[in-house]
Design a protein around this nucleic acid. Structure first.
Lengths: 189, 189
DNA sequence: CTACCTATTTACCAGTTGGTAAGTTACTTG
DNA sequence: CAAGTAACTTACCAACTGGTAAATAGGTAG
């Protein structure tokens, strides 16, 4: 009965759980009680926890990359694009969540292979987008940096993920904003 | 029989487990089998897992701060001190481990209160040391930065932890080194 | 020799974990 | 209306979780 968007509702709850407690920090029972269904019903939609994990990353990446396409579509300059990129992180943190893949990066040692690969794919795609913006910014003389765009993109990604993680454990979004403004400021031409 | 340094050996193994798999990623049984003792024996030394966790952070902080005192004792300039600070992170990563407290920061949402407080204390002490070095560096005109030393210290800490976390999931220490060199380079006068 | 203390083991325990098999309900389609 | 199918539930399960009580071995001190 009802609408068959149950899979999405499971993913919504699981996503929040991973972002706040980690992949090893929640169980099927947690989702079941939040959704008022039985555990067995969850296994119908996602046979194993690793399946749920993989589909979680895939959906997260899809939504994240869609947001990046939207930033591109607005056609602002590169500096403003980076500001909006950082603002996504800030919004996630404002909801007391960690980036899904940043969280999984910490739990890397315990993840099934498929999830490891999917997680790294998320970072690779982020890096790819950042490289594009950084090159655009350098071309348009609105950004300046030494080394390759790829190096800067990796550093930027790490900085935002790390600042997010630590700021969250202080419950202090301003702490993230401060670090984010600083690194973006250093890139300004 | 034998020597009663069992507590330390338990801590050694637990430390490695937390740094590679996370606090929620290992059990007393894992330590017991690695040490060839029973679980009950572990509970004699650390009644609850939260006790083990708290003592783990305390020891890690003590050792870490001792390393910072050693850096100070060598009396180099501030830039070199920061390089050595980053080298500590690099060494930990080279052993395929995450910073203990960086790992715990990710798992923040599931940690008992005492561990949360201890973890933040570690970051606070790191920040305090960094502020001292940054101020020294500014005074001696070997470092330059805008904003307060506290802001820079927080940003630096977040950057190193984040770069470490992501580099580890790529099994790529060079990736950390690149980000670390970059942020330190930006601070050079 | 005895009493005590430290460190350890054996033998449990209740609760939770991810997961499965078989049945049930309700909607769809030939 | 019968057969099928999608989305569940009930009722399990073995393995593992953190944790405890009681017994035991070995060293030490009076």
């Amino acid at each position: 009965m009802a609408r068959p968007d149950t899979s999405q509702r499971i993913l919504d709850i699981a996503e929040r759980l991973v972002q706040t407690r980690g992949y090893n920090g929640f169980s099927y029972a947690d989702i079941a009680s939040a959704l008022h269904v039985t555990k067995a019903s969850l296994h119908y939609h996602f046979p194993a926890k690793a399946d749920l994990g993989a589909r979680l990353i895939e959906r997260y990446e899809r939504n994240f990359l869609a947001a990046l396409v939207r930033i591109d579509a607005e056609g602002r300059d590169a500096r403003e694009k980076l500001r909006r990129y950082a603002a996504i992180y800030e919004d996630v943190l404002g909801d007391n969540r960690m980036c899904l893949c940043g969280m999984l990066a910490a739990e890397f040692g315990t993840l099934p292979k498929s999830m490891r690969d999917d997680m790294r794919h998320f970072f690779d795609e982020n890096e790819r987008w950042l490289v594009g913006v950084l090159q655009q910014g350098k071309r348009e003389k609105v950004l300046k940096f030494s080394g390759t765009a790829g190096e800067v993109a990796q550093a930027l990604l790490g900085t935002l993920e790390g600042a997010m993680m630590i700021a969250r454990s202080y419950g202090d979004v301003a702490r993230f904003k401060s670090a984010s403004d600083r690194v973006l400021g250093e890139l300004g031409a």
